[in-house]
Design a binder for these strands. Structure first.
Lengths: 228, 228
DNA sequence: TAGATTGTTAATCGATTAACAATC
DNA sequence: TAGATTGTTAATCGATTAACAATC
């Protein structure tokens, strides 16, 4: 392990970590618009958070603002990117090239935000003839070789639920320790491996819960309880 | 507003609401496997949460377990579905039928979990000849008519970032009050409208942050700070 | 100096969890 | 009755926010 630059061994709360990419994106937009400086209030507006929370979040990174003036957009942007770790590209592998895998492979936001899709893998030989977003679809069994060769640390699972645990096991065995899981299933992984889960129908269900409680609602005919 | 059944005017914490769909999915799997009863410990294992937290979550819904025995799978499943509001189908409209829109339209998990995609809309006339997952792609300008006709309360935005705010404005004007936003931009909406955001690159960045901090890491050559 | 805005403090709020009495 | 498991309490932890001293 190489020695770290002096400033940052404090650890950043999870809630703050989850917001840093939001700030980063807003700062990128501001930079593209030619804005050189912004206040915590302006950045808070742009990201939809409370300005006190924003300042508290930034204070975990260090002291990068100027009292009475605000933040230098380019400088703060760089500091946040460095903290997150997206000043260099992360090689990513996507497994499961169905509809969602296609969409992910074609998503341009990865490349511009610090990620490079180095391989698309699928167990189905009929999909292995395809080229998606300029990348060959290869057999799932190539996983280990690709992880080794490209130094892949992050894997994306876009397979059906039934295949997801096997894919995760293989990824972990191959040395991947960060997994983004789109399959609607809970993955069991050893300690030290991070899994984040994106579940489309869960998001819709959370919306439905609140929608159901909104005031003048159409009468919903309750259906009967199941006999038990 | 119709009167509510007696038991539930207590309100459920947000953190609990976000977990209810996870419990629901696990209970559905158990039911399909023919399991009639389960303990909080078993359900907690299946969903990856602490069993005390699970019991506390369920206690906000009511008292649906039996001490010394556990929970009846079918009954608890029904009660959670009722609380979330997915005992009947919610009509959903998807706007933006690019790669991601295709993937969403084809996602079978919606139908089985209380949602019905009633329309696919796109502003691009060349996409309006397509049929995706058995549903015609129609002009975005049909939005208001479809919302009215089908009683759509939930809209999904899968357009590029530049179009998302306009789409949201039109949705709100048409009467939609719950939006699931896949576009990488912060939406401004009036009070009373719920927006949930799914951002793929943000999820990856959160993984990258933790990955970067994991112990014996390959030396990352730091790139220089920008001149300011 | 006067005005503006950061970084930090401290109060408050909400979520998690261990422990256990209630009870099947 | 003895064993098992729920539902709830209370302690703890973490996140949010208003307020303001520090300082540009």
């Amino acid at each position: 392990m190489t020695s770290r630059p002096s400033a940052e061994p404090r650890d950043i709360p999870e809630a703050t970590v989850a917001r840093l990419p939001v700030y980063l994106r807003a700062l990128t937009t501001l930079a593209e618009d030619g804005v050189a400086t912004c206040s915590s209030e302006e950045l808070a507006q742009a990201t939809g958070v409370n300005s006190a929370k924003l300042r508290k979040d930034l204070s975990y990174l260090g002291s990068y603002g100027t009292r009475g003036v605000g933040y230098d957009v380019a400088y703060l942007r760089y500091q946040i990117a460095r903290q997150i770790g997206v000043t260099q590209d992360w090689p990513v592998v996507i497994v499961g090239i169905g509809n969602l895998g296609h969409a992910l492979a074609n998503y341009s936001g990865f490349r511009s935000r610090g990620f490079r899709v180095v391989a698309l893998l699928d167990a189905d030989p009929s999909r292995q003839e395809e080229v998606v977003a300029g990348v060959d679809v290869r057999p799932f069994d190539d996983l280990e070789a690709i992880v080794e060769e490209c130094g892949v640390a992050i894997g994306v699972i876009a397979t059906p639920a039934a295949a997801a645990q096997d894919v995760a096991d293989r990824m972990v065995a191959a040395g991947i320790r960060s997994i983004l899981n789109f399959a609607p299933t809970v993955l069991a992984v050893p300690e030290g491996v991070d899994v984040r889960k994106v579940d489309l129908s869960i998001e819709l269900q959370i919306l439905a819960y609140h929608e159901q409680r909104k005031s003048p609602h159409l009468a919903l005919t309750p259906i009967e309880e199941p006999a038990i």
